[in-house]
Computed example of a mutant assay.
Amino acid sequence: MSYELQVNGKRHRVDTDADTPLLYVLRNDLQLNGAKFGCGLGQCGACTVMLDGAPVMSCIVPVSVVGKRPVRTVEGLGTVDKPGVLQQAFIDEQAAQCGYCIAGMIMRAQALLDKHPAPTDAQIRSHMMPNLCRCGTHMRILRAVRRAADTLRGQAGGGRS
């Protein structure tokens, strides 16, 4: 079956089975390899992307349910040469150790900051809880999210007259 997806602001047509996980389409058909296959059961968060602004575990989202809702992956936040604010905060805080969970962590954090630009530490912890980091860089990840929130608030305030 053929599906038209909007991913990172671009339209893509893919031919696949209705029950194919969105993760497989992103990685295999669109060569967007930021989201990782971790557990395949929606329990670890390594595959987290945003679907219509909400974080979802793409390993358990069939492509057939995406419809016209926009998909955003870590590749849609910035580039190697010009990382997005949140990506830069993760770099600055050295939040990645092995790096496997980081794309999913960044996407979950981006969804939080899009809805709550000034989250409390408790909100950050609660929102990030579904995603697992086996290396134990949780404190650095929390600092990176706080840093990005502070940066974004500074940018918003700096542009006003």
Results as ranks from 00 to 15, higher is better:
residue 127 H to G: 04
residue 157 G to R: 15
residue 112 L to N: 07
residue 78 G to D: 07
residue 109 A to N: 07
residue 11 R to E: 05
residue 127 H to P: 12
residue 132 L to A: 09
residue 19 D to Q: 11
residue 2 S to H: 13
residue 141 I to F: 07
residue 26 L to F: 15
residue 36 K to A: 03
residue 100 Y to N: 00
residue 145 V to P: 00
residue 16 T to G: 00
residue 134 R to D: 06
residue 21 P to S: 04
residue 60 I to F: 10
residue 74 V to D: 04
residue 45 G to N: 05
residue 11 R to V: 02
residue 44 C to Q: 06
residue 20 T to N: 03
residue 19 D to S: 07
residue 26 L to E: 08
residue 88 Q to F: 14
residue 83 P to N: 11
residue 18 A to W: 13
residue 84 G to L: 14
residue 16 T to L: 09
residue 64 S to C: 10
residue 3 Y to R: 01
residue 91 I to A: 06
residue 1 M to V: 05
residue 7 V to E: 04
residue 134 R to A: 02
residue 33 N to V: 10
residue 43 Q to L: 15
residue 46 A to S: 14
residue 160 R to D: 05
residue 86 L to P: 01
residue 145 V to R: 11
residue 51 L to M: 12
residue 71 V to T: 05
residue 6 Q to T: 13
residue 21 P to Q: 01
residue 62 P to W: 13
residue 87 Q to A: 07
residue 96 A to I: 01
residue 147 R to G: 03
residue 156 A to G: 03
residue 161 S to M: 09
residue 64 S to H: 08
residue 140 R to F: 13
residue 105 M to T: 00
residue 88 Q to N: 06
residue 14 V to R: 12
residue 29 D to T: 05
residue 56 V to M: 09
residue 73 T to G: 09
residue 115 K to R: 14
residue 25 V to G: 05
residue 124 I to D: 08
residue 90 F to D: 03
residue 25 V to H: 11
residue 50 M to A: 10
residue 145 V to F: 15
residue 110 Q to I: 03
residue 97 Q to R: 14
residue 79 T to W: 14
residue 22 L to R: 13
residue 13 R to P: 03
residue 72 R to G: 01
residue 3 Y to I: 04
residue 37 F to R: 06
residue 24 Y to A: 02
residue 70 P to H: 09
residue 139 M to D: 11
residue 152 L to E: 09
residue 126 S to V: 01
residue 161 S to A: 09
residue 63 V to C: 07
residue 151 T to F: 15
residue 4 E to N: 10
residue 113 L to D: 00
residue 85 V to C: 05
residue 29 D to V: 01
residue 9 G to D: 05
residue 132 L to E: 06
residue 132 L to S: 06
residue 8 N to A: 07
residue 27 R to P: 14
residue 44 C to I: 04
residue 79 T to S: 15
